[in-house]
Design a protein around this nucleic acid. Structure first.
Lengths: 223, 223, 223, 223
DNA sequence: CATGAATGAGTCTTCATTCAT
DNA sequence: AATGAATGAAGACTCATTCAT
């Protein structure tokens, strides 16, 4: 299953390819079995490779775990950076671009969310995990703060505290991720985006309109 | 910490007491070392008891872990139930009571938050959590929904969608918990309550006023 | 179940009574779970007594095991001694008395046989077990030898070697016990006695007649 | 004993070889320390291998114990099958071949006998033994029955009951094994074969002669 | 580069024994 | 005399890592 029909298994592969193959396997395995339930045996099996391969390419299982988190962070970062680049130079547009990136179908999958929270769960005791995710959070927060400040100032929302606003938006987004973690079968990225849009329409009524779709956070499959 | 000066270790104690003693030790150990780093040796050491005690009272380490999660859930539930009982029969008061319970000093401690997310981080325990809290969570959601509906109707906030509102509030509260998990030294229950109050003041300006304290999510301890 | 209706549980009982109660429980537990599967918990449960009782009365589990073997040996010995006493002073009668005692319904039960072989299985590594059973075997062997010698001499079976004969008879008896161990549901004490009688009728045709019952070692329940 | 001088430990060996190595070590360890005294540490030490090796090849200690019993049963079976194949088509010769196989030097060693009875001593393994050897034992019994029947009929021993005879022979053989278990230093395969031959000479005087060696079941080594 | 058999430190668990009641 | 909660040494098993091929 790890190999496609056109590209049969090769005994040797470019280092970069194996590394990615192992990170992909790690994502699936961590999501399925948790960080502590992820044994090298399970992981290499998932990757369709041999037992020794992790130590060969990463030195240790821990290093692979770190690389997996870094990969997750890098992917997330490149997503919202691109979104920001593509957005018009307008605080409302940029703010929404950040949110859309957060709930993009490639980013906000049950598997990846599970892995994020697996790392969050261990973050307190693993300085490495905390350090990695901190540096990433800070950067995005700064952009978010900036957008909010400009929108409040330029959009005429002087009643709002831009700093608090920025923080509220981030918390809300995090809370929605937790929702998807706990109830992956009942929450969709669309419903989450709609929730964010609703919140934005309350904060910034002159820049965002409420979603037209009816509210349906749970059981989107049973109409 | 294993024993207080006034109450030295007794060889015999009521079963209920030992059970609680072990759950308490589990909370501390999980918070300190993570779920995967929690060995029975570490845990019984923390409790000041012998190695065999876990199996004597719980049958297995896993059963103790489950009991710990259950205890956390039960404590949380009993807290917001009492808060609701004590609150005036007024939607705004009841709504705020639910929030205060969520961020109560006994409930929202760095240790307990760490344990909550430790369990959320592992698929296996997530399932257990869902099973145990299924009825509780629904119940609390219902109260929250009810409060929002009444407040919107009676308070004259017809522009708001009460259902979405309720869900937004819950997500925000969850998101703030995650904040405390990741930055336990920089976030206090007070700052979180202020954030919630800010949000409420935007939603329900005629019922809630913004907090007077300046925004200070980070480093409230270093003036 | 260990107590009868007329004799309710007493907290204190004559030492001898508790000792016997524990030995009886040991017989059942060893037969059911093997020597290594016999835990003190299982055993005391079987006896309907508390966990500490074994060490109180025997000092250790090992001592109880030894006492159990000794009890088995003593019972066996007293059985064949009585049989010998009751028999006519006639080598053939005495020989047969020894055999009958060996397959007596009180002696040759599936439970006791299982316990005998449990001890045999460990005899090589437990000097104590070996020493105990040796002393017992020797004594009975001497009587058996004596009977055979007299029967050969007085009965006019000069073609037979009395020593070999005696040994053959013992081996056969042992082999039949093994049969009952392995197939307790298909072997009865009657069928075993008949087998011995057959053997005797071949050896000593002028003193023993073949059994009249048809041969049915296996499946005596399905005619 | 862990390793021979010519064949030092190799890190990699065919699976079949390791499996056999562990079964051999199990035989020695069980014989030496009993089934309950056989710890994985002792066993792997005996094999000259590491602690994890049992679980690697057998999954659990119990599986290795079962494999050891199976190996013993299979070896026994193949021995008497070959013996039967090699014997002349003559009931007396075939009968004796079966007996010789039972007391062959490779089969009837103090070590292996000890292991046989170690398994017999525990109800759990007894059940396993019955399950595994069910077909084998029946098969061997059938051959034995057949030999006896033909020998009685063709040899003119009409006074004997062939079925009983067959069973008596088996019991005797089993009883002699028990003898070797309890007195390994005083019983030899030769003395046992002589005992069987004596028995046969009584049953079938025209086909078997008594052994010429004097009876010496005990202490054959100290002249 | 890749494999996978082997390793062995680290865990959880069992259970005979102890001891306060 | 009896209890049974607690102990802790000893055991089986796991799994990241190593290394001969």
């Amino acid at each position: 299953m790890p190999q496609t029909a056109t590209e049969p298994a090769r005994r040797t592969a470019p280092k970069q390819e194996r590394v990615q193959q192992l990170i992909d396997a790690a994502l699936v395995t961590i999501a399925e079995h948790g960080l502590s339930g992820t044994t090298t045996a399970l992981l290499t099996q998932q990757a369709g490779l041999s037992a020794g391969i992790i130590n060969l390419h990463f030195g240790s299982k821990d290093k692979l775990m770190e690389a997996t988190l870094e990969s997750l962070i890098a992917e997330h970062r490149s997503h919202w950076m691109s979104a920001l680049d593509a957005a018009a130079d307008d605080p409302a547009a940029r703010l929404w671009a950040l949110i859309e990136a957060h709930f993009a179908p490639d980013i906000c999958t049950p598997t990846k969310i599970a892995v994020w929270f697996a790392f969050f769960g261990e973050a307190r005791h693993r300085a490495t995990y905390r350090r990695i995710s901190e540096s990433f959070d800070t950067e995005r927060s700064d952009f978010m703060d900036d957008c909010c400040e400009r929108l409040v100032a330029e959009g005429g929302y002087s009643a709002l505290d831009p700093e608090r606003l920025s923080h509220l938006i981030e918390s809300m987004a995090d809370g929605l991720w937790l929702d998807m973690l706990l109830y992956p079968d009942e929450v969709s990225v669309d419903s989450m985006r709609d929730q964010m849009r609703t919140q934005f329409s309350y904060f910034f009524p002159r820049h965002f309109t409420a979603p037209t779709a009816p509210f349906s956070p749970s059981d989107p499959k049973t109409p």
